[in-house]
Structure formats: C-alpha cells, structure tokens
Write a protein that binds this DNA or RNA. Structure first.
Lengths: 157, 157
DNA sequence: GCCCCGCTGTTACATTATATCAACCCCTCG
DNA sequence: CGAGGGGTTGATATAATGTAACAGCGGGGC
C-alpha cells in the first residue's frame, strides 16, 4: 500500500484519506469545503498524478464550477496543508499517502503506466544536507522524484 | 565555484564550459551548431536558471531566429547531452557545472536571489535506491531539487 | 546526381498557470 | 443590530510554458 504498486483495497484509500484530512482540518481550524473535499477524493481515486485540467474536467462533468482557478485554489490548499503533493516533473498532483506523518516525500514515477508511488527520503539529513551545510545553504524543502519503470511495466517490456 | 554561491572568475566559467562542450561534441560526432553554442553561452553567463522564453528574448535581441521551437530544440540538445540541466521546480534551464563527470545532479535553489548551485547526490544508491529496490522499481533518472536560502540571502533577511 | 538525414525556419496551437475583480458568507466587534 | 474584515467563490481574461507539423536547406555517401 505504501508503495502503490501493489493491489489493495482502494475504497479504503479514499475513505481514510478524506477522513484524515477532515480530522486535521477540524483540529487546525481549516475549512474543508466541498470543492476541496471533492478534489481530494478525485486525487485519492487514482495512484497516479492528475493534471489540474484533468481534475477540472471531472468537476465539470459533475456540474461544479469549473474555471481553472477553482481547481488551482483547491489544489493549492491541499498541497499547502500536506493533503496532496505536486509532482514537478509532471506538472501534476497526487494525494498524499502519509498524511499522518511529517515527511519529505520522494516519488517513484513509472514512465510506463504513469503510476506514482510515494516513499519518504530524509535526504536533507544525508549527503545533500551535508553539502548544503558546507555551502551555508539553508534547505527549506526538497523535491525528490525518481523516474523509471515499475515492476509490472518491466515485466511487460 | 562548484557551488556557485561564491564569487569567482566568471569569464572562465563561460570559456571552459563552451570548450568542454565543443570537445565532447567533436569526440562524439555531435553538431555544436551556432544556436546550440549561443544558448549554452547564454546559460553559462548566469548562475541562475533561465526560462526558455528568457533565452528566446536574448536570441531575438541578437537578431537570431526566435520562435519558441528554436530555443527548445537547442535546450533539448544541451540537456540530452549533459551540457545543461532542466530545473523542474522552475520550468527553467541552467548550464551544467560538472560536464566532465557522469553525475546525478542535485540543485540548491535560492528562493531569494534565484541563484542555483549544482551539487552531486548519488542518492539512487542510498536510502531511495534501497526503497525502490524493495519495491522492484527500476530507477532511470532522479530529480533532486532543494529550495531554500543561500548564505547571502540569509544574511540580508 | 540523388537520396537521406539532421538541422532550420515558421505557423499554428496545446497545455499549464495567474491576475483581477465583484460577490458572498460568516464571524466578530462596537 | 449593523459595519467591517477575512476567507471563499465565481468569472473573465490573459500570461507563461511547451509542441505538432511541415516545408526547405545542406552536407555526405552511394
């Protein structure tokens, strides 16, 4: 489940994800509005990154307001509060699978099936942190995105 | 020099970078055409990432052909052959500062002055490689981009 | 000579993202 | 109660980034 390349009870992913976000919003006084909830659900429904306009299309089909800012605002909120992540390599977004823990996410992106798995890599504490420290650079955030082939796509190749 | 946050003889950066690229192209039978050379020079002239359209503007000022594909084609070439890197976080490009060695680049991006330093972080061999290995994921390429404040911007803040 | 291949020049378009402004809701403070 | 403020929404317009496609050119090999 952690890595997303295995099969699993997917309904559970959605339910739990939404529940956790809801709880966090409650305890931190954040507004978990219908748009935000719906966008999170859409993201949770897939273990792959979705572009803002894919999400927008889905909102449209459901009759919700659907100008680009609507999607981007919801996504900004989700990303800002750690309910989702932006995948820079893909200009796309994915639901967080480790909402409970503070973490520096690292992503494994399959170029075959486009699925994305979230791992954690505390590399700001490792070699990179060491190099940065020597240079006097203060790291605030690290993007780690590995591209390659997932087990299934290796097999079919 | 490696980290780019220090002052240094900048003319040297440009000369050496172009010379190395030229040499590599020669030995590998690649065409180091005027556009490609010029774009590399433009990148080497700064220790920050430049957007494709910034480069395009500069080409225009010099009277060169300047439709977007011109810049993107030159950049694709430079990136493909390791003379430059794409910074995903910024949708921008920067000259490589380690052309001599094969490497997995890692970038330190200052959100204050926008300068970018290139370090090397072989993390496909570290924790991340370990996690990927356990999941059966085959890593082909890794993007590592740290965002924060360089020494100078920390001081002025 | 002729073909092939890689580079060029150009048009048009696709995709991704933001600025801006008016309206609204709810809450608080006076 | 009413005024004002903060955050959210709805909508238009536009900016920024990236690509498809095609015609032409030029050198190198057969």
């Amino acid at each position: 489940m952690t890595l997303g390349f295995e099969t699993h009870d997917h309904r559970g992913c959605i339910r739990e994800g939404v529940a956790q976000a809801e709880e966090t919003c409650l305890s931190e006084g954040l507004q978990f509005t219908p748009h935000r909830r719906r966008v999170l659900e859409i993201l949770l429904a897939e273990h792959r990154a979705l572009g803002a306009y894919e999400i927008l299309d889905q909102l449209r089909e459901e009759g919700l307001a659907a100008q680009p800012p609507v999607a981007y605002r919801a996504l900004d909120f989700l990303v800002k509060h750690g309910f989702a992540h932006r995948i820079e390599r893909l200009n796309a977004f994915i639901a967080c699978t480790h909402m409970d823990e503070a973490h520096t996410p690292a992503f494994l992106i399959c170029r075959g099936c486009k699925s994305v798995a979230e791992a954690t890599a505390e590399l700001s504490r490792g070699r990179l942190g060491q190099v940065a420290g020597e240079a006097g650079f203060e790291i605030e955030r690290v993007v780690v995105e590995a591209e390659g082939l997932c087990p299934a796509c290796q097999a079919s190749a």
